[in-house]
Write a protein that binds this DNA or RNA. Structure first.
Length: 955
RNA sequence: GCUCGAGUGGUGGAAUUGGUAGACACGUUGGACUUAAAAUCCAAUGGCCAUUAUGGCCGUGCGGGUUCAAGUCCCGCCUCGAGUACCA
């Protein structure tokens, strides 16, 4: 029988599904192992060969761990809420649920063909109400929590209320909004219920706040910073503007330090950790308050500030408080709230013009134009906290409203941007560094800093001066040491239809209230149109049945809203990362309707042992999900505060695009070799029209692009040769290769092996279908090893294996095991090839070799392995067979082919016994005729002998 | 600019702590089998020089260095890729 991969693969895929071979038990005596893939968004275009790369790697690992006796959890699901389905719905009126269902079906078919060992009984879909019930549930837990900095964890909001009642908020050390007022217990008691709720919102871990957001008018939605690329939306490329809106936010900043610290205990790729570290952006320094000098203000314009009561203060954050005596001006962001208050009437026109000009400039302009220096003087002066000297206050768009306090103390001698600004506007640049020339540029080297001209800081190093100045600032009440983070709270509202509804309604006073947990899920309502409403409300504003009755606890018609028992529901939905922030835990107990997961289950599975996915999620999903995990840990819901011990980023598989060359003017299509210096326009040709020798099927090409029907094709040697270039695999570049076609022609086992054989998992590499014949003929060779005779019938013998056979086998076991443990899957494929080549040459037929070999290969090529295993007489699946045990003694050699080198260059090899001593080796080598030939009569200066390794003769 | 990663044959790539550079494949060339093709098998394949077998020289982005020995370690560059961007 020939190697009939189609029959074999279909047979075993059916077998695995029918026997639930890969179902993981939640109670097992075995040690657990959790292998997770980043679940896909089921897009309309299906999978291309780049998508399964990570899934194949994780599947090999999962199968390997089963052979090693672990209880393996290896689930798969779908991140099925998202914009493309909604866009499609807007265009066609088709409900996103239907599109999503169709796409999922297609994904499932494609995945099934690849022979993955997923436990499909645990499938989750983020858009399934049985799943998003728990996404909403976590939202409610966040809403009912606040962050206690003293305890360094999230705590119940009820406890916070209790301490407000007792002592007000003066002793509460919490992560809360900047503008939270101080109040006493009696103040609290006197607050109205509305006021109390508003205060509490400033503490909740998810809260409603006016936020400056990136509004995309074309999409009718707000985008996160990481969804904007070059100032336009990542999807669709529409323009984005800044706008203030009331939005739900997640207080992720409360966890900034713990998110940073947690990175130390997880085995994730360093580049990924680095980008999270940069994203969080911790910097140490001081916050300093500068009084605005009242005398400089324009009393006519600012009567209140003149009274001295509401004294204006500019608060800055600086990482170099040691340079405070070098401050020669202050700079505020143009958006800073103080700008309008302190500007003098003389400067008013100029300042207002500048503020208006910067507001008009798009983010894009501001970003593109880093070099030009602009700003305006407000006319106001601040007072230096130590020298009491007046400091002019400027505004400039190089200071960002969104970072720190939106104001800086400008020290031109120590900061290049301040330096450039000062030079441009002719502001003095006092030098406060000892023996440093600042005539050309600022001096920012902390290590070499010695402070001068700075009163009590003179002669101190950066470290000492910083310590001292912070102490002094605290003494005079003008500032304190502070740690600042770049990380912002995450906006959590989306003006979209196809996302999780917030379990929130608005009460009589417009205060958000969560619905009772036991009434979850709050299911998405039906709408006529998926676009924002005419009044600019999110798509849920189109729903007619979207109000909450607090007596019956269900959704009712909007016409019943009376603000007494029936209230309007939230119209925003949650962002894409909501559902993906908890799925890895839900897989452990996906059908549980009473709890997000049972405590027994989470305590058994604990966390993910291996997580494989793309690096593009470094600062999105992978940061938010860590935040939620830490929150759940604080609430005692999960046993560990980092959910993935090890993470690997698979590299991208790029496509190899093909081009034809159309000559300008003539319109002729010229073969690559004839282009030379002719003026040509390269045009993408579909890669399926090109064979492995880069030759184009001209007739097929003409049929594909009708405009070329009559074009003249200029050939070389009777062929049209296309140009090739490596690009991202994408539909628009016509270089997409579909895994279904590969499976059809070569089989899933070949595809699995080939994807691994391409190169290291983490590296990006180009796809070239031609190479797959190598692994495919390897599988055929493997098949022949177990079959013989003219009919190629299955035949193995019971004869004892030879020493050689055993050596080949154990060498392979050792290498493959090491490779899998090191995620070096490409090298184990070549190891298999070497093994099969050797066993074929040895004419090995021994069951004692071929049995273990089938298990070794089974993680990589599971279908053929099952078939061979069955041929060997086994009735049980190979999936749980134990991995062959490596035995060192089969590899022990008695001799070694020593490389004999002269001055470091290998000239010949010499076989010598391994137990031969240094001196004897040297004697044998020196006596050898080739040695004499090499030396040509010279006497060597030195002979290096490393027993078991090498001999090097110097001289 | 900063951070990270990577440069090895025509191509993908291999080389455990410094110890035989180019494993394993693809491609190419030649051969066997065949009426023919496919499939399969065998051989050669880093470059240059020499050739009667034996040989010689050069070679892991570039320039230095350490070492008996460097793709691997150190110093200084170059190029490409990814991320990030006026972060005070």
């Amino acid at each position: 029988m020939k190697y009939n991969f189609k029959g074999i693969e279909a047979k075993w895929q059916e077998h695995w599904a029918k026997h639930k071979t890969f179902k993981a038990k939640n109670d097992s005596e075995k040690e657990k192992f959790y292998v997770l893939d980043m679940f896909p968004y089921p897009s309309g275009s299906g999978l291309h060969v780049g998508h399964p790369l990570g899934y194949i790697a994780s599947d090999i690992y999962a199968r390997y761990k089963r052979h090693k006796g672990f209880n393996v959890l290896h689930p798969m699901g779908y991140d099925s809420f998202g914009l493309p389905a909604e866009q499609y719905a807007i265009q066609t009126g088709q409900h996103p649920a239907i599109t999503t269902e169709t796409n999922i079906k297609r994904y499932r078919e494609q995945l099934d063909k690849l022979g993955f060992s997923f436990d499909w009984s645990r499938e989750v879909r983020t858009s399934d109400p049985r799943y998003y019930k728990w996404t909403q549930w976590i939202f409610i837990q966040l809403f009912n929590s606040w962050y206690n900095i003293d305890a360094d964890k999230a705590e119940d909001i009820v406890d916070l209320i209790a301490s407000f009642e007792k002592d007000g908020n003066t002793n509460v050390n919490a992560s809360c909004d900047e503008d939270t007022p101080e109040f006493s217990a009696s103040d609290w008691a006197a607050f109205s219920s509305k006021e109390k709720q508003e205060i509490l919102l400033k503490y909740r871990l998810t809260y409603l706040a006016d936020a400056e957001v990136n509004w995309c008018p074309a999409l009718g939605t707000v985008l996160a910073n990481d969804e904007i690329v070059n100032g336009v939306s990542e999807r669709g490329g529409h323009p984005v503007i800044r706008k203030k809106m009331t939005q739900w936010s997640m207080r992720i900043t409360a966890y900034a330090q713990r998110l940073l610290d947690g990175l130390k205990k997880i085995d994730w790729p360093q580049p990924l950790k680095d980008s999270q570290t940069n994203w969080i952006g911790r910097s140490e320094g001081a916050s300093v308050k500068f009084k605005v000098q009242a005398s400089t203000l324009d009393s006519a314009l600012h009567p209140e500030s003149e009274t001295g009561k509401g004294e204006n203060c500019i608060e800055v954050f600086t990482t170099r408080p040691d340079t405070i005596f070098g401050t020669s001006f202050m700079t505020l962001a143009p958006e800073h709230e103080l700008v309008s208050k302190i500007t003098t009437s003389a400067q008013k026109a100029e300042v207002e013009a500048y503020v208006e000009a910067t507001a008009k400039r798009s983010e894009r302009d501001r970003m593109a134009d880093v070099k030009s220096i602009t700003g305006a003087f407000t006319g106001a002066f601040a007072e230096h906290p130590f020298t009491k000297e007046p400091i002019p206050v400027w505004i400039g768009d190089y200071v960002l409203a969104g970072y720190g306090t939106g104001a800086v103390m400008s020290v031109p001698c120590g900061d290049q941007r301040d330096y450039d600004f000062a030079k441009h506007f002719g502001i003095p640049i006092p030098n406060i560094f000892e023996n440093v020339d600042i005539s050309e540029e600022a001096f920012a080297d902390k290590e070499k800093t010695i402070i001068a001209n700075s009163d009590f800081l003179n002669g101190l190093s950066y470290t000492k001066a910083t310590k001292k100045i912070i102490a002094e600032l605290e003494k005079i009440g003008a500032g304190k040491g502070k740690v600042n983070y770049r990380l912002r709270d995450a906006v959590f509202s989306r003006q979209r239809y196809w996302g999780e509804p917030f379990p929130v309604y608005y009460d009589t006073e417009g205060i958000p209230q969560t619905i009772g947990e036991k009434y979850l899920p709050l299911e998405l309502p039906e709408v006529e149109k998926y676009l924002p409403t005419e009044t600019g409300e999110p798509p849920l504003g189109n729903a007619t049945h979207w109000a909450w009755n607090i007596e019956t606890n269900n959704v009712v018609g909007n016409n019943l809203i009376d603000h007494k028992t029936v209230f309007p529901l939230e119209l925003n939905t949650m962002p894409g990362w909501a559902g993906s922030s908890q799925y890895f835990n839900r897989y452990m107990d996906p059908l549980n309707g009473d709890a997000i997961f049972s405590q027994e289950t989470i305590n058994y599975w604990q966390d993910v042992d291996l997580y494989i996915g793309g690096s593009e999620h470094a600062t999105g999903h992978l940061l938010y999900s860590r935040f939620w995990q830490k929150f759940m840990f604080d609430k005692g819901l999960v046993p560990v505060d980092e959910y993935a011990k090890k993470l690997i980023n698979q590299g991208m598989i790029t496509g190899t695009s093909a081009f034809v060359f159309r000559e300008e003017g003539t319109g002729n299509v010229i073969s690559k070799g004839l282009v030379k210096d002719k003026k040509v326009i390269p045009i993408h040709a579909d890669v399926s029209l090109v064979n492995s020798s880069d030759e184009l099927d001209i007739e097929a090409f003409k049929k594909w692009q009708l405009e070329y029907t009559d074009a003249q094709f200029i050939l070389e040697e009777g062929k049209y040769i296309v140009g090739r270039e490596v690009e991202k695999m994408s539909k628009s570049k016509y270089n997409v290769v579909n895994p279904d076609e590969i499976c059809e022609e070569y089989g899933a086992d070949s595809l699995r092996l080939y994807e691994m054989f391409l190169g290291p998992l983490e590296q990006s590499k180009p796809w070239n279908t031609a190479g797959i014949t190598g692994v495919h003929s390897f599988l055929k060779k493997l098949w022949r090893l177990y079959h013989s005779g003219a009919e190629a019938t299955f035949s193995v013998s019971d004869i004892e294996p030879s020493k050689e056979n055993l050596k080949t086998l154990h060498k392979t076991i050792k290498k493959v095991e090491e490779d899998i443990e090191n995620f070096s899957f490409n090298t184990s494929v070549s190891t298999f090839m070497i093994c099969v080549n050797e066993l074929s040459a040895q004419k090995c037929t021994s069951r004692k070799i071929l049995g273990p070999l089938a298990i070794l290969i089974s993680p990589y090529a599971p279908h053929i392995a099952e078939e061979l295993w069955q041929g060997l007489g086994h009735t049980e699946t190979i999936s749980h067979a134990s991995f062959p045990k490596f035995e060192e003694h089969y590899l022990v050699e008695s001799s070694k082919e020593y490389p004999i080198s002269f001055n470091g260059k290998m000239r010949f090899t010499l076989e010598l016994p391994l137990d031969m001593g240094k001196e004897d080796i040297e004697k044998s080598v020196m006596a050898h005729e080739k040695t004499q030939h090499q030396l040509q009569g010279r006497t060597p200066k030195k002979v290096i002998v490393v027993p078991g390794k090498i001999v090097n003769i110097v001289g």
